[in-house]
Amino acid sequence: MRAEISTKNIRSEFVQRVEELSGQDLLACYQCGKCSAGCPIVEEMDIIPNQAIRLAQLGLEDEVLNSKTIWLCASCFMCFSRCPKGVDFSKIAEALRMIAMGTEIEHYGPQQVPWEIAAEAPQQALVSAFRKFSL
């Protein structure tokens, strides 16, 4: 991956917005990788959680917003409960999802659920998925 690292990106509005929405200090992360080591969904991700935080730190907006990773966080908080710096990746992922959705109201909405799944999935799964993946 080719990426431009510049102070312009690092101090961009995007970085400020991620920190504001998530309430997390992105630069607190020192890339130990404990979040990625414990993540139960990491095998499905294109970039792993600590890489997503690194991209956000550097203000590489397109790279992080176009990753599959932000849509694969189930907010189980395994990463957060093990993070030595107290960084909550689940909150960062939620902030990134909100920015990525922008004005596209639904990333995953009722139309995407096959009816046979909707008929047998527990209500809480439907409510959670719509809450996490639509604005």
Partner: peptide
């Protein structure tokens, strides 16, 4: 204490299948 895949069961069923299998 690992996650079973939670609501990804709907949006990314393969991820939930793998996590639950483990």
């Amino acid at each position: 204490t690992d996650c079973c895949g939670s609501y990804l069961s709907l949006s990314a069923p393969d991820a939930a299948t793998r996590a639950s299998h483990l």
